[in-house]
């Protein structure tokens, strides 16, 4: 029986870095604001806390991978993020890497 803490630790290591990729990929498909993006990520099995996601969005924006527009149609103004061309390019690069890893894992003999 595996120790749950051990599983959690290895899972965390495996998932580290996938959040940015998931955000960029989702926002390339449909632009969205932070809170709804958390919901979309959760639906896909990416559990991301608000205190991680919002600083991440801002960082990706500063890196030129995301762009945003203010949505002022409701009482509370919201930043609606969309993946910038540079972000789309990065997604395709990272996705190719990810696929290579998946293929490599599939090629390995299963225990």
């Amino acid at each position: 029986m595996l120790d749950p803490d051990l599983i959690a630790q290895h899972r965390q290591e495996l998932r580290r870095g996938t959040t940015s990729l998931a955000c960029l990929a989702l926002l390339a498909a449909t632009p969205d604001y932070g809170y709804r993006l958390i919901g979309r990520l959760a639906d896909l099995g990416f559990e991301v806390e608000a205190n991680t996601l919002y600083p991440l969005l801002r960082r990706l924006d500063k890196q030129g991978l995301l762009s945003f527009e203010w949505d002022t149609s409701e009482a509370r103004p919201r930043k609606v993020y969309a993946t910038a061309p540079a972000g789309i390019e990065l997604v395709s690069l990272l996705r190719a890497d990810w696929n290579r890893l998946t293929e490599a894992l599939d090629r390995m003999d299963r225990p």
């Binding site: 932070g34 608000a50 801002r58 509370r76 919201r78």
Partner: peptide, 17 residues
């Protein structure tokens, strides 16, 4: 100012939900 608007949006959306 940038962080403030984002933070208020984040908190507001989560509270409303």
């Amino acid at each position: 100012s940038d962080v403030e608007s984002q933070l208020r949006e984040a908190i507001g959306d989560a509270v409303d939900d």
